[in-house]
Structure formats: C-alpha cells, structure tokens
Design a protein around this nucleic acid. Structure first.
Lengths: 192, 192
DNA sequence: GTCTATAATTCGATAGAC
DNA sequence: GTCTATCGAATTATAGAC
C-alpha cells in the first residue's frame, strides 16, 4: 500500500499540477504552455499529468474555472454602476496572482478554438447576465458588446500586451478613466 | 537560362508567398501558421519559402508592413476627431480582405515576443504620433492609452474573438457607438 | 503510484540532385 | 530555380517495468 497523508497524496499532486497549469496557461496560453513545462514547474513527472487529467485539453478545462461573480447591478445606484463594474474587474484581475481565468482564456482563445468558444460562453452568460436586470431588453446586446469591447481591451493592453501607457496606469487611474465610459455603456444615453 | 516573364518569375512567386503568408498570419498568428501550410496555399514548395525569405521570422517581418496612416487630426475640427479616428480604423480593418497587419500582430503578439515588441513600437510611434499635435503633452500618454485600449478592444472582440454581440454590429453601429468614447478620450474632459 | 522509454506527429530548416 | 529527402528538435500521449 502507498503512503497516505491527511489530504490524499493524489489530491495534493493534482492540486500542484492545477496550480502550475494555471500559471503556465496564464502566462503562455494553451499552445504555448507545454505539459512538460507544467509538470517540471510542479516537480512532477509529465506522464502523471496525463494520468490524472487524461489529456492537455481536459487539464485546460479543469484549470479554467470561470466565475466572474459580477456584482448585482440592481443593488448599485444607477449612477455608480460603471465604477462598480470597473472596480470589480480590476479587483479580479489584480487580486489573485496569475490565476485569473479570463486572462488565461484571452491568451488561449487567439489560437485555440475551444478556448474561444468558452470565452464566448462566459461572455454571453455572465456579462449579459449582469446587465440584463438593469437595461432594457432591446438594448441588452448592444450595451453588452460595448462593455465587453472596452473591458477586454483594457485586459488585453494592460495584462497581455502590456503596452506601457496602459500597464503604467495605477489602479486609481484605471478606475477614474474607465468608469465614465463603462457608465455610459451601461446606463448612459446611446446615440440613436 | 531560366524562363523570364515580364515581372521576374522570382518576384511572382515571392508575391504569392507573401500573400499566402499574410492570410495565414492573419488567421492563425505567427505560431499557428506553419511554413508548410503557407507554401501549400501558394502552391509552392516549402523549401522555397526559406530560400526566398531566409526564415519564418524574416517572412513575418516582410509580411507585416504597418502603415496605419492615421489622419492628421489637426486638420479635423476638434469635435469630430473621435469619429474620424473610428472611421479610419474601421476602414483599414474592413477594407482590404484579410491583410491588415494590425490584426496579424494582434494574433501573433500573444504568443510571440517579437510581434509584441513590434506592436509596442507601432502603438508608440503611430497612435501617440497622431495624438501629439492635438493634445497637451502632459496628457499625451494617458489619452493614447485610453484610445489604444478601446480601439484594440474593438479589434479583439470583433475580428479575433468574433464575439457575436460585437461582430454583428454594422459599420454604422460601430461608428455611432464608439465615436463618442474616442472623442472623449482624444478631446474631452478627463477626470482629475 | 511513479517513472523510463518511446511511439507518432509536426515543425523549421538544410543539403544536394537535377 | 525547383524539388526530394531528411535532419534535429519539440510536441502530446501511451506502454509497461518496478
């Protein structure tokens, strides 16, 4: 019989693989992150990764757990909804180190069709879902598109491309400069 | 002696390789596009690609010719600069089929360091350059960052990720909805 | 459970015949 | 100029010893 510590040994190695995988996918995207590199960073044999997760594809699916947990906008005063969204995203993206699934998806979706599909799903269910209670049904798709384009553009330029002009902005700068835009997209007048 | 037609034979094959390469890089990014696939699409032997361009890296450099040719904003009335920029980008991106270098760079920069650097350079020289004549020096970096985040976010969601909500917008929709944002980023009041 | 060895692909790039 | 053949490296994934 093999050794057993309080959390099952298999669970610990599985968790180590997942942590390493999240970091690698976050930094390099699906194609760029190799199973070998993920295993090496976790001090684990590459064969174990496949044994535990079946394939790189399934490992990716397990590593990407998307829970945007967007705030309930109905409980935010109408004039502060833009700022609430910007603050929420910023907190998500800069809170936990290198593990945000949306950035992983963003890096992967460019070259990996499955990742792109998952990003579509996340967007459709969560962003649209957050806006639905507070915008007219006839404007839901349009306002969601605008919010997605600006928030993903911020994520792209700040975390993926790391354009200095955007990456050098402080958190305060980001909230101050992007909140009015998102506010208009969520609750402001739209040109007819 | 080998056959010679009016444009040198070598020039024709070279042009065919470049066209195929642009299409492949545009669709798949640097890593995703293989020399073999590029050659196959051009009905040319893969070895010829290397012979003509030296390496995949140099082929990429030759294929990516960035000329944003942004309009001279000083000659546009201040109140219409946002719209002028949005219209210009849209025309660039939807004008020539599948050849826009900025989309190629965007798809490649995620996984390819050289492409990311080139995108930094393009942004710094061209976007910042277009804004410099019409914004205060103290606000140049900040306003450039905002414009880049929104325009690249639009390109990302519409052409790369193809989020339906964004991809389904008509050109008229895009101009109507994004011009006010870019206008504010270029010429509007910034929160202090 | 773990690891060695390796199969099966695919890639960029090269050498050399013609 | 063109193409065949191939090298060397990298990848995911599997088989099987221990």
């Amino acid at each position: 019989m093999t050794e057993e510590v309080s959390p099952r040994k298999g669970d610990r190695t599985k968790a180590a693989i997942l942590a390493s995988a999240r970091n690698a996918f976050h930094e390099l995207g699906f194609d760029g992150a190799s199973v070998r590199a993920i295993a090496a960073q976790a001090n684990i044999d590459p064969a174990m990764v496949i044994r535990y997760f079946g394939s790189k594809q399934e490992l990716f699916a397990a590593a990407v757990r998307i829970e945007l947990r967007l705030p309930d906008l109905a409980q935010v005063p109408k004039s502060r909804r833009g700022r609430a969204l910007v603050e929420h995203f910023l907190h998500r993206w800069e809170g936990e180190p290198n593990e945000d699934a949306l950035i992983m998806l963003l890096r992967s979706a460019v070259s990996h069709e499955d990742a792109a599909q998952r990003l579509h799903t996340v967007f459709a269910s969560q962003v649209v879902g957050a806006l639905r209670p507070v915008v007219a049904a006839s404007e839901l798709k349009r306002r969601s598109a605008l919010v997605a384009s600006q928030m993903l553009g911020l994520a792209l330029t700040r975390y993926v491309l790391r354009l200095p002009a955007v990456a050098d902005l402080t958190r305060t700068d980001v909230i101050r400069d992007f909140s009015p835009t998102i506010q208009r997209y969520v609750a402001g007048p739209l040109p007819h």
